[in-house]
Simulated assay, not measured.
Amino acid sequence: MIAETRERLDAMPGWISQQTQSSTYPRAFLAAAEARGADRAQMLADAGLDAQRVEDPEGRLSLREVWMLAAVTRVRSGDPTLGFACGDSMPLTAHGNLGYALLCAGTPREAVGLLQRFWHLRGRGVQLLVNESDNDMFMELVPECALPPRLVDLMFSSIATSMFRGMEFLIRDLPGTAEIWLQGPAPDGVETWQARLPTLRFSMPRAGIHLVGDLSVMDQPLATANPEGLRAAVAQCERESALSDPGGDVLRRVRAMLLAGPNGYPSPVMLAERLHMTPRTFRRRLQEQGFSYQQLLEEARRRDSCQLLRDPEREIRRISDQLGYLNPANFTRAFKSWTGMTPREWRQQSSH
């Protein structure tokens, strides 16, 4: 995993080497791995990191360094569930000014809005997409770069666990059903975390936190609400945002615009026009982020397929058409490659 991660990182755009990341998260991975018997000095050496930089509370690392260290801690700890342990150890205050803003928000819905607005301050390299219907909210995690699948599972299990713990702290009674979805297979030893977290679902078409039930709780006042503290925290977040590099904005906007309409998904030419770019510039900007239009289209299809399949009245053939597949067999093959199940099998399982 270490060699694979290093090779993949070498091929990524230069912005991942900018020192924009807090040292909080690397320290959390190191601590979790140490608790499992890994040697701290050896892990830092493997990742090519100086201990002083990591230990400095004000220290900044690059995404490349953070991802490399995460891969090293996973290998040296020998624990495929390390991400859950890392996320479980981080309270809201570990997320700096953004964490304080969430604590001071008036309602859970306002907190989610703040999380989306300032996610880039703490979640660079991963995007947060929030989709909500009447009784359904999905907080989706999407990588900004084409990382090795095992590293994505490690990072996403940590992020989703940390997010869920924050939600538990803020919201006294979570709506109906809460689930954590991950795209990789269930790791060895996950039974421990199945008992401590909400339902964990693996081999899913997308990753994130899924809430189903009465979402009116999202508009209830939070016990920790503090308007004065919120103003101060938001001001600090805005200051951080003004000083940070806004890279990845094109990728975020394309993902937000890739929605299936009556005529399917928008084409590359249509997206380029909406972004006021030539098609050639559009392709180049995506390539700089390590993606292509086709990859993002497949992401959108994975995302939307689950939502559409949850409606038992919607025929699978109609879903296939809406997602832009020429025939249902193509959709079935694609969906099975994402989840290991056919659309019909997944629908039956998710209804239980």
Score class of each variant (00 low, 15 high):
I159H: 10
I159R: 08
S162K: 03
S162Y: 05
R165H: 13
R165G: 04
R165F: 06
M167F: 12
E168K: 15
F169D: 04
L170N: 07
L170K: 05
I171T: 12
L174F: 10
L174N: 11
P175M: 09
P175Y: 03
T177V: 09
T177F: 01
Q183W: 01
P185Y: 00
P185F: 01
A186L: 04
A186Q: 14
A186F: 02
D188W: 00
D188K: 01
G189L: 12
V190Y: 02
E191G: 08
W193F: 05
A195L: 10
L197W: 02
P198G: 09
F202A: 06
M204D: 02
M204T: 12
P205M: 05
H210A: 11
L211Y: 13
V212Y: 07
G213W: 01
G213N: 04
D214M: 08
S216T: 15
D219Q: 14
P221R: 06
P221G: 03
A223I: 07
N226R: 09
P227T: 08
A232G: 01
E238H: 00
S241A: 15
A242E: 11
S244H: 08
D245W: 08
L251A: 09
R253G: 00
A256R: 13
L259C: 05
G261I: 04
G261V: 10
Y265H: 13
Y265R: 12
V269W: 05
